[in-house]
């Protein structure tokens, strides 16, 4: 079992993700630079949070054309587990690996605080250590986290059980209170909240570590 944590210029949650995997869970993990092109050695790919390429143009818009994204796409097609957290979610949406868009929060401000989430689908390799409808706490820190999808796409997300997490108290205007979604095959998870920052009690919550534990026990 080996994780890859992708590093873009401007990633800033890469070390947090690495720390949780390596030092909290004792699992192998490497940083992989955005100009690398091979991810075949890894079982799970983490696209961490941050401000890749300064969030110029739109959050995630430039990162999507990095060399490593070709490798991520081909591993995604093979069914490999991929998690995008915050900016990682924005990159997955911009690249078309996840549907919809992440637009500016409805109140226009950057939010950084702890929030509550409901586990909406615990039947996935990312969420099977949670119970159905479990309420969990973890931080959010974003300005472009307002999940947007048209009516047709929202219906598809509901019909295919692609909604992973919902906010209990919508902080940013997201459609259907969506905080995280899967692709249709459920091997890709994108979420705005930060599980890697909620994986140790000293940080106020251990609720996030179950995502990593779910992945490890599923692969």
């Amino acid at each position: 079992m080996k994780f890859a944590v992708i590093v873009f210029p401007g990633s800033n949650c890469d070390y947090d993700a690495y720390y949780v995997i390596k030092h909290q869970l004792n699992v192998d993990v490497d940083f992989v630079w955005h100009q690398d092109s091979d991810l075949s050695d890894y079982d799970c790919i983490v696209i961490p949070g941050g401000f890749s390429y300064g969030d110029y143009l739109r959050a995630g818009a430039i990162a999507r054309f990095s060399k490593i994204m070709n490798a991520i796409k081909s591993e995604a097609d093979k069914g490999k587990a991929i998690v995008g957290i915050c900016n990682g979610f924005q990159i997955l949406v911009e690249s078309g690996l996840l549907p919809g868009a992440l637009i500016t929060n409805n109140h226009t401000r950057f939010i950084s605080r702890n929030i509550s989430l409901k586990v909406f689908n615990n039947n996935s390799l990312f969420t099977n250590h949670y119970t159905s409808n479990e309420i969990i706490n973890m931080p959010i820190a974003h300005k472009q986290g307002n999940y947007f999808a048209d009516e047709l796409l929202l219906k598809q997300l509901k019909d295919n059980n692609q909604i992973a997490f919902k906010y209990t108290d919508n902080p940013n205007g997201s459609c259907l209170d969506i905080a995280g979604i899967f692709n249709i095959n459920k091997n890709i998870l994108g979420m705005m909240p930060h599980p890697e920052r909620a994986s140790e009690q000293i940080l106020g919550s251990k609720n996030g570590i179950k995502i990593f534990e779910s992945i490890i026990s599923s692969i």
Partner: peptide, 9 residues
């Protein structure tokens, strides 16, 4: 139909 928060403010 897409919210333009900056325009609104």
């Amino acid at each position: 139909g897409i919210l333009d928060p900056e325009g609104l403010i």
